[in-house]
Amino acid sequence: MQLTHLHSYARPTDLESAVELIREGGRGTRVMAAGTDLILSGSDEITGLVDLGGLALSYIEDRGGAVAIGAMTTLTELLEHPAAAAYLDGVVPEMLRRVGSPLLRNVATVGGNLVRRQPWSDVIPLFRALGASMTLFDGEDRSGPIDDLYAEAAHLTGTILTEVVLPRQPAGTAAAFWKFTRSAVDIATLNCAALIQAQESGCVRARVFVGATPRLAAAVPSAEAALVGTDLSASAIAAAARAAADEVSTGDDLRATAAYRTRLVSVGVTRCLEKAQERLEGVTS
C-alpha cells in the first residue's frame, strides 16, 4: 500500500465544498488530481485526499483563438485535441509528446503538472513562455498569470487551480519547445521553450524559458533582450544563445553535470529559436 496513513477520501461535486473539505482536513489533507505524484510520494504525511475528479474540470475550449484548459484535463486529452493542434503550429502537442509515456499521459493532468512544480516539468516552461493565465478558486475565482504559481512565496494551500488559458497570440507569433533526454522516456536533462513575435521592424517580443537546469524553469531575460529589435537572423539567435549560456546557472545531478548543462543551454536555446523562426517564416511566406 502506498499511502498507508490515508484515512479520508472525498470526491466533492462543487468547488465550494472542495475548498471547505481542504480547510477542514487540515495539515495532512491534499488536493488530488490524478494522484500520480501523491502516490509516488508514498508520504506518511498524507492523511486526507480531496479528489477533484467530480468537479467537471476536464475540458478544452477554443475561445476565439485562446485555448481554455480545465485543470483536470489529462495530458492525452490536450495532446489529441484539435484546438491544441491549431494553436501556434501545434507547439503544445509537440511538448506533450515528450512528457512521460502514453500510459502516464492518459492519467496525469495539466493542473497537477503545473501545481506540482517539478523542476523538470515540460509543461511549465512552455506555458510560461506562451504567457498562460490561470484561475484559482479559494472561495471565489481569482485570475492571474500562471507565473504567480512560480513566485518564490507561492503557496496554494486551500486553493484549487481550476483553469489555464493559453492566450490568443498576435499575428506573426511563433513558439517552439525543445527537450533533451538520455532516452525516449525520461525527464529532461534540460528543456527550453521560446516564443517570438515579429513585425516588419523585426522581433518585438521574445520569451525564452529554460528548465531542468536542474532547477525549476525560469525566464532568461538576457536572451530575450538579445532578440528584441533584431531580425532574428542566425547571428541574433547565436547572440541570444550565448547570453543564455552566460545567464542561466546550472547544477549537477545524476543526469548531467553543470558544465554539460551549460553547453546544452546554448544548443537548446539555439534549436528552439531556430524552430520558432522557421515557423514564423512558414507563416509569413
Binding site: 499511502l3 477520501y9 488530488m32 509516488l40 485526499l49 475528479g53 502514453p102 500510459l103 502516464l104 492518459n106
Partner: peptide, 21 residues
C-alpha cells in the same frame, strides 16, 4: 507498464491510480 490496464478505455498504469479514485 507491466501493470497497464484499460481504465474507461484508456491504458493506464494501475500502480499510478488510487483504487478509490
Amino acid at each position: 507498464g507491466a501493470c497497464a490496464v484499460l481504465l474507461d478505455g484508456s491504458a493506464v498504469n494501475a500502480c499510478m491510480v488510487l483504487a478509490v479514485a
